[in-house]
């Protein structure tokens, strides 16, 4: 506007600011992963020394986010815990927590990776390989997959037999060298190192051997049937 004084009209800074924020957001999406890694390394020592726990509410990453798909889940103790291996097997079995502790244990550190992007690196896991439980149960010739069931009454996860027999698929009895807490899906949960978190059933109560690979809870709601973590 040549004949209007600039001071009256002003400059369209608002539009620039909005576009600038959108640009910042886009840069953040592309670089955020590495920025966050650096930030969380810097602040890990602060969080360790924070008795209030408030710093863990700051979105610095590498922190657990707890999911539940039902109402409040009734906690179970190790004492009243029971894991059933059922379905298309020659030897249906039921394990108490002590039974599971008596089996050969596998231990390793691995990342818990959520499909939405957040992750917790180097979590120490310990438990029994699903492959060992399957071997003992002896799946029949019609067996194709397994269905993990949760004692929350709703959650299920599917895997093919081959996927379930992978070396990094555990019935987890301990995390961080301690009992699996209720919020983490204790006393017993699944951990599958090569797959996104939704494949790692919390509050595990049963492994059913099935004649199909029908989708579980989140698989039914649009998440990939296999759930393998993609290569970077």
């Amino acid at each position: 506007m040549p004949n209007t004084p600039v001071a009256d009209e002003g400059a369209p800074i608002g539009r620039r600011a909005v576009l600038g924020l959108l640009g910042l957001g886009a840069v953040g999406v592309v670089t955020g992963s590495s920025v966050q890694n650096r930030l969380s390394q810097m602040l890990a020592s602060v969080q360790m020394r924070d008795p209030t726990g408030l710093t863990s509410q700051i979105p610095l990453g590498d922190t657990w986010r707890y999911y539940s798909v039902t109402g409040a889940v009734e906690p179970r103790t190790r004492g009243d815990y029971n894991l059933k291996i059922s379905g298309l097997v020659d030897q249906p079995t039921s394990y108490s927590f002590a039974d599971l502790e008596g089996l050969p244990q596998t231990e390793f550190d691995d990342t818990f990776q959520c499909v939405t992007g957040w992750s917790v690196p180097d979590v120490p896991w310990r438990g029994v390989r699903v492959s060992e439980l399957l071997e003992a149960a002896a799946p029949t010739d019609e067996a194709v997959g397994v269905r993990y069931k949760s004692f929350d009454g709703t959650y299920t996860v599917n895997m093919t037999l081959e996927q379930a027999r992978a070396k990094d698929v555990l019935v987890v009895l301990a995390m961080y060298d301690a009992p699996v807490t209720h919020d983490h899906g204790g006393p017993v949960r699944i951990y599958s190192g090569s797959m996104y978190g939704y494949k790692s059933t919390k509050w595990l109560s049963e492994i059913e051997v099935t004649s199909n690979n029908a989708p579980g809870y989140w698989e039914d709601r649009g998440y990939p049937l296999d759930g393998f973590i993609e290569d970077e």
Binding site: V29, G32, Q36, V115, T116, G117, W118
Partner: peptide, 12 residues
């Protein structure tokens, strides 16, 4: 988008 961008999107 790929996983590292989803991690970035969570961060943002």
């Amino acid at each position: 988008v790929r996983l590292s961008w989803r991690a970035g999107a969570t961060f943002v």
